[in-house]
Design a protein around this nucleic acid. Sequence first.
DNA 1: CTGAAAGCGCTTACAG
DNA 2: CTGAAAGCGCTTACAG
Lengths: 337, 337
Amino acid sequence: MGASLRDVAQRAGVSVKTVSNVVNGYEHVTPTTRAKVEAALSELNYKPNLSARNLRRGRSGIIALALPELDSPYFAELARAMIKAAEDAGYTVLIDQTDGLLERERHVLAGIRPQLVDGLIVSPLAVGREELAARTDDTPMVLLGESVFEGPADHVAIDNVAAAGIATEHLVSIGRQRIAAIGVQPPDGQGTARLRLQGYLDALGAAGLPVEEDLIKQGETFHRKDGVKAVQELLALPEPPDAVFCFNDLLALGAIRGAHEAGVRVPEDIAIVGIDDIEDGQYSTPSLTTISPDKDQIARLSMEFLQSRMAGDRDAAPREVQADFRLIERESTRGRH
Amino acid sequence: MGASLRDVAQRAGVSVKTVSNVVNGYEHVTPTTRAKVEAALSELNYKPNLSARNLRRGRSGIIALALPELDSPYFAELARAMIKAAEDAGYTVLIDQTDGLLERERHVLAGIRPQLVDGLIVSPLAVGREELAARTDDTPMVLLGESVFEGPADHVAIDNVAAAGIATEHLVSIGRQRIAAIGVQPPDGQGTARLRLQGYLDALGAAGLPVEEDLIKQGETFHRKDGVKAVQELLALPEPPDAVFCFNDLLALGAIRGAHEAGVRVPEDIAIVGIDDIEDGQYSTPSLTTISPDKDQIARLSMEFLQSRMAGDRDAAPREVQADFRLIERESTRGRH
DNA sequence: CTGAAAGCGCTTACAG
DNA sequence: CTGAAAGCGCTTACAG
């Protein structure tokens, strides 16, 4: 294969140590020596063996990012931000796609790739709080997404209750009275949905609007198709809603599509708002009002937490931080009816 | 940190070799010995050090996937398929996001992470054929995307000329006469655009339609915003087109949005077709007619090529394979005007 | 400023 | 079936 340090050392007529010094940018090397070594280095097209280096150094410079799915735009956009933030910090990212499956999330938490990955950023869907807390692997970890973990590890998220509240409130503010929700999960489902439901209910209460069971719909996988289906059921109701708060943008885009298919106008007949601010929502017809979490900030904060843990600060109490978000008004909630 | 093989060996009262045998599932181990070892293994919560194993074995089980951007839906969907295919083959994927920048693509080709990655799947945008051919790093590599490489490495792609031809032809078949194109690149731009332009021109020729310079628009970054801008320019023409072939779905979705903003109906006034079959196109209003490349097949073929190279078949002539694609008709080209 | 040597944790011929 | 030992390629005290 490629040349080793020893090959280079031989060719340059110096010791392995000296070559290593040059390769690693150690300052105190005679110009002459350095020149000789560098010549040999490039003649042999030397590339360090990273496995060996990692073994010796006890670190790899790789962190794993475990996400439910890479082709859901929110996660894709988050992954981009994360890869960028990791790179700025000198790390590269390895991605694990869990599909939100319990089995796979467990596998990640138990430590796939021991000693190959210096840290872990995980967005769990299936695994619960207790299991997270009972983790035996000691690779530094940062949690993403929900906000009901209560301390098994550092955690970065937006305030989901508040975000959902603001989205719902916005629908109230434009004069809507029958506000539906799409994205509720079965009782054992993910916490994000529970928190967003909470925010929705809080906002209805604050506005003095009644809660109607019929207007609260499940969104099993948080994908467009669930949004289509749910909105169709809502529109088939004897007294359909005049607005929908969708627990994410994909559901909302599905809802827009479903309304269109049913011949119902958005926003005139039904206003729609989502959460995530994925790019699609800027270009859909109508464009989508949404809550925009600061993805770059989430990425940056996650890396900061992870870095401090990787740097040795393992025992400090788990930290919890909430990233910024803001409401972005677009066509799907414009105007009154 | 964690326990090493030696720790386990001591505890079990056997040699390191025996523990290694058990860990690696070597068959010929006495049940008694195995039991002892397994007990020690779980008592110490042993996890193999992958860096050490990789160093020794000379392989890592990791392949790198270098894509322009992870948050472009086509690449996100392709990445998902690739991660899946790699996993089926026992590999994990590390993603490099090049942003299509020459500098970063070069870095990938020169071998970032030497010996840490067994193989490379690259979708180059900026780097040209000559440079690919002149690569010095000998990590096995598979190329994705264009089809004008002519042999520097194994290559998987769809037949872009044919795909563009079929898309254009479809517009002809529904009676359109003034068919525009969006997505042309500056002369030194990527080959994909050149090939799709070729297919477009071929189809116009075959249909006996004239080529009009005014109807051929650039699409610098292949993103939605370029589609919006280009379609607006087209619609401002004294004699606007009645159809547009967009070189990818993102451009097409932008074009739909742009037409909507201009008060022009799709498909009645202007029919639109794209390439990629990203999920958004199923749910847009109107839904998008497109060419669907078989992404799973692309992923599978790439892995097969890569595996054969990684298995040692380094010197065989570079292979070229074309993945399947098909036209999917949706609302954006339905009906005649 | 440079060298000789140990050792990171593993796998693998080689013996027995 | 199991053990003792070498070595993958690197980094890093330790000398000098």
